[in-house]
Structures are given as structure tokens and as C-alpha cells.
Nucleic acid binder design. Structure first.
Lengths: 193, 193
DNA sequence: TCAACGCATTGACTTTAGTTAAGAAATAAA
DNA sequence: TTTATTTCTTAACTAAAGTCAATGCGTTGA
């Protein structure tokens, strides 16, 4: 179990120096939880008071529109999943679902705010990480807008080849905003080249 | 000129209580600047050390791809424009251009950091505003992914009718990620309904 | 073992956006 | 005002995604 905590510390150490006290505080303000394939971590319409750091596995966020699922993002190992409405009273617009067996470290605002009180440097840290996530998001939005479905697929294969293996095709399709039939055709088209 | 500063304070007062001292500090750490239509505030490849609050006018951010412009966002009155690479040494990936005559309040990190020193509550404030911007961004991404170009156009007409009036059609088209010809057809299609 | 279900693929057809080119309308410049 | 230039619209054609329907292929479960 200690290995799991280490991954979080490793993640944070990319941004700041982790003291022994801070390490202890983080260990105390999070806990490990396991989910199985298909488990829903967050429902549309409900509030969320948890955020997750993925130790192992894959989490998918999606909306429902006209009865079918529109995948927003896939999160995998060593990524933080922070619901948009985290630490607010706003009901969630999206779902969080485990694509496979998933082990996460769970954080919540009550425990966090204590830690934040004791370690003001974490405030700066969360701002920096937030900025970085925001920049990545904006970039991937720009990438998305500038690409055709075919280019988006090629891009995904290149940047996250693991997803192609571990995620059902129709979820990949909804992530690329095409119908499963179209994704099949895109793949066939690329084979004949 | 005092009226302009007031708009910033009004914006900030949505998030925190503005004391007299804070008001004074903000007034001292920003200045007003005017631009005319077509002026470039930030070039691709250059670093940015300014952020803007729009008093009046409209600013467009865009990338260049294959020679033509891809509009990322339009910013108008009472909105903050914070370049992605603000306060970093990272060269900008996008341009900022004035769509029309625009009056902004300019902030920069040197002046700001002094203010931040004196008023630690501004740190929290910037985190909250950052989170809000992030949430909006993620939501508009989701909206975008879930919609057809036609739906995106209708959505824009509904949510930001002013843009349709003040921004050239081909820039609107690039914002919706369609060619100008397609936007023309979409409009015609909608007329005949 | 075999039936049922979900998932991926394929085909025929429809719809819509991209492309190219031409012309109309609006704006800016001489 | 008149000329240029940019912007918008229209048309004909091509390419690609959506839709509907059928088939095949694994996995699950009775």
C-alpha cells in the first residue's frame, strides 16, 4: 500500500519539494479505494465531494445527449481526476465511470483544507497545477478543433496507444465524436494506405 | 477614467470583499490602454507579460494553421484575457488581435506580485477565478464536442448574439470550425425552416 | 451446448461539409 | 465618386460522416 502513496508524492514532487511533514499530512488526508469495471464514481445531477488520483486503471468521463454517451475524457495511471464541480454545490453535468478495475487515492475538501492551512505552499502548488491542466486543456481543445476525425484518431493512436487496447471501440468513437460505424471506416481507410 | 477602474472592481467584488486599500492597490497596479481595430496584442512565438481586462471592445485569440486563422475565442466587455503563457517564459502559441476599437486595463506580473504580497487574499481569489475559467472552458469544450456545426451556430446566436453583429462572418466561421461557405449554407438552411 | 446479447464490421443511401470557381455586396482607398 | 479590395453568397462537384439495416463474431449465461 505504501507504493501507492509514493506515486502521489512522485507526482507532486514534480512541482515542489516534499518535506517529511507534508508527506505525512498528505498520507493522512487521502485514502485508497478500489472499484470494478462499470462502477460509477459520479452521477449526472449529483454533487461531488471527492477527487481522485489514479494509481491503476482507467476512468472515463461522459455526458448523456439524446440517449447516448458522449465521452469527454479518459484518465489513466498517474493522472488526477478533479470533477468540475469539486468542492462546490453545483450538480455535476457529467458521469465518471471506471472502464476497468481501478485503484484510486481519494481526496476530499474537508481533509484538504486542514492540510492547506498547515502548508500554505500547497496553495501555490494547486494554482500551478491548475494552470498547467488549463493550458493542456486549451491545447487539446485547439488540436481537436483543427483536426478531422481521421486526424484525431491518428493523433490518439500516436499519443495514447494504450487507450486503443483497453477501451471499447464505441467509446473511442464517442471520444472522437464520430459514430462507431464511421470509426470502423476510418480504420479501414487507413489500412489501405 | 474612474468609471473604467470601477468595472474591474465590480468584477472582482463578485468574488471577494474589496477594501479601500485593495481598491487603491489595484488602481496603482494597472493602467488603461487603447487599441484600434486590427492591432495585435500578442504574436505567436513571443512571450507575454501582460494580461487584460476589457473595458470596451472585442479581442480575438487565434492560431495559424496551413496559412489560415483558426479562431479560439472572442473576449468582450467585462471579461479578463489572460494569455496561456502569462508570467512564464513559454512562447505563445496563439495571437491576440483587436476585432474593433478596444479599451483595456493592463496588468503585469511585476506590479501584481507586489499587490499579492500585500493582499494574500488575492491569491485565493486568483485560484477561484482560475477554477471558474477552467470550468467554463471544459464546459464549452463539451458543448462543442456534442454539437454539429449547425447546433454550434444556433448556440452562439442564442448565447452571444452581439458577436454575430460585431464580428466578420468568416471569423465566426473559423470559430465554429467550418468554412465561410458552409456557414453561409447553414444560415440559408435555417432561414428555410 | 446452445441461445442471447453486445460489439464491430459492412453495404446502400442520405446528408452535410470541403473544394473550386464565379459573381454580388459591402467596405475601404484613391 | 470611382476604383479596389475584402467579404459574403451561390453553384457544381467531391469526399466524408450519419443513418438504417444486415451480418458476423465473441462473451455470457441459462
Amino acid at each position: 500500500m505504501q507504493i501507492m502513496k509514493d506515486k502521489i508524492l512522485q507526482y507532486l514532487s514534480k512541482y515542489t519539494v516534499i518535506t517529511k511533514e507534508l508527506e505525512k499530512a498528505i498520507a493522512e488526508s487521502t485514502f485508497i479505494q478500489c472499484f470494478t469495471k462499470g462502477d460509477i464514481l459520479l452521477k449526472e445531477g449529483s454533487t461531488s465531494n471527492e477527487c481522485y488520483f489514479i494509481i491503476k486503471g482507467c476512468i472515463r468521463s461522459y455526458y448523456l445527449k439524446d440517449g447516448d454517451e458522449k465521452t469527454i475524457e479518459f484518465y489513466t495511471e498517474d493522472e488526477a481526476v478533479i470533477p468540475l464541480n469539486y468542492d462546490t454545490i453545483i450538480p455535476s453535468g457529467h458521469y465518471l465511470e471506471c472502464v476497468e478495475e481501478t485503484i484510486v487515492s481519494v481526496g476530499n475538501p474537508e481533509l484538504e483544507s486542514e492540510t492547506f492551512q498547515k502548508f500554505p505552499e500547497l496553495g501555490m502548488l494547486s494554482r500551478i497545477i491548475g494552470q498547467k491542466i488549463m493550458a493542456q486543456q486549451q491545447e487539446s481543445f485547439a488540436d481537436y478543433k483543427m483536426s478531422t476525425p481521421e486526424e484525431r484518431y491518428l493523433n490518439l493512436v500516436k499519443r495514447r496507444p494504450d487507450l486503443i487496447q483497453r477501451v471499447p471501440q464505441h467509446q473511442i468513437a464517442s471520444y472522437l465524436s464520430v459514430k462507431p460505424e464511421s470509426l470502423s471506416r476510418i480504420k479501414r481507410r487507413l489500412m489501405n494506405k
